[in-house]
């Protein structure tokens, strides 16, 4: 789905040897990743393998214990203050649960980054919010509703509209189809593909929904025990030659990945 050659010189996002532990538990254990400009990269992996931690580390919400994170070639691992604010303007994020502000109506949620982040006038920001809502298939009638009045699918669309409202260069998707029925999940997948293509943005998605991963990605990587154990083009995932990847994409209980299940 990429619109720009994924072989630009400087990677849009680069992780080198990123490590993160919480107490004795190593969550990321030397992750290396490179995502080119305009590319859509999907990270798959089971629950608790460190996908969200990796995403939050790139976003600056968590600080890695070791390693380097670069955005557009600029090291962002330890930046704060205005330098961090400047990098954050490049990002858009769709949270797993939507993370809509329930104290604000829908249009203010969508326009939040424009009003608070960019200082845009409310009337102008509202027009853009209505436009972005239309881009995700929602009419202006939902603009004044509270997020609590929307269904799960509609909340996800509003969250997507908010993620793209500031025209970000990089969009992160955290489990974009979790909790949705298959049809709504496919609608969200289509919207993600369309929005990322229209913006010419780079996308980094974490999911364990293989249908979603196949549909929205140019490349896929699998995270297991804190390491990216395989990465390659989406078309190659069925022939990865990696037993862990095979077990995961086919959803088999038997294989090298042992789930800790306690009965009784």
């Amino acid at each position: 789905m990429s619109t720009v050659s994924p072989h630009s010189d400087t990677p849009k996002i680069e992780l080198i040897g990123v490590k993160k532990a919480f107490g004795p538990k190593k969550v990321l254990d030397g992750v290396d990743l490179s995502v080119a400009k305009g590319e859509s990269f999907v990270i798959i992996g089971g629950s608790g393998t460190g996908k969200s931690v990796m995403l939050k580390s790139i976003l600056g919400l968590l600080r890695p214990d070791a390693g380097t994170i670069k955005v557009d070639g600029e090291e962002t691992t330890h930046i704060d203050g205005r330098a961090r604010d400047r990098v954050m303007t490049k990002f858009g994020m769709l949270f797993q649960g939507g993370a809509l502000f329930d104290s604000l109506p829908v249009w203010q949620n969508v326009a939040f980054g424009l009003i608070q982040g960019q200082g845009m006038k409310r009337s102008q920001a509202r027009d853009i919010a209505i436009e972005k809502l239309a881009a995700v298939g929602l009419g202006p009638d939902v603009a004044n509703l509270s997020p609590a009045e929307l269904s799960g699918g509609m909340q996800k669309r509003v969250s997507l509209a908010r993620a793209i409202a500031t025209t970000p260069e990089i969009i992160f998707f955290d489990e974009p189809t979790t909790g949705l029925d298959p049809i709504m999940a496919d609608v969200i997948n289509d919207l993600i593909v369309k929005c990322v293509r229209d913006l010419g943005a780079t996308a980094l998605t974490i999911t364990h929904d293989m249908a979603s991963a196949r549909k929205i990605s140019d490349r896929i990587g699998m995270l297991y025990q804190g390491k990216l154990i395989w990465q390659g083009p989406t078309s190659a995932i069925d022939d990865s030659g990696n037993a862990y990847v095979d077990q995961f994409i086919h959803g088999r209980a038997e294989g090298p990945i042992q789930m800790q299940v306690k009965l009784g």
Partner: peptide
Amino acid sequence: TMRVTEQVDALTTLST
């Protein structure tokens, strides 16, 4: 509630 529903993280990602 904003913290556990990631709304606080959302603020950060929206440059706030």
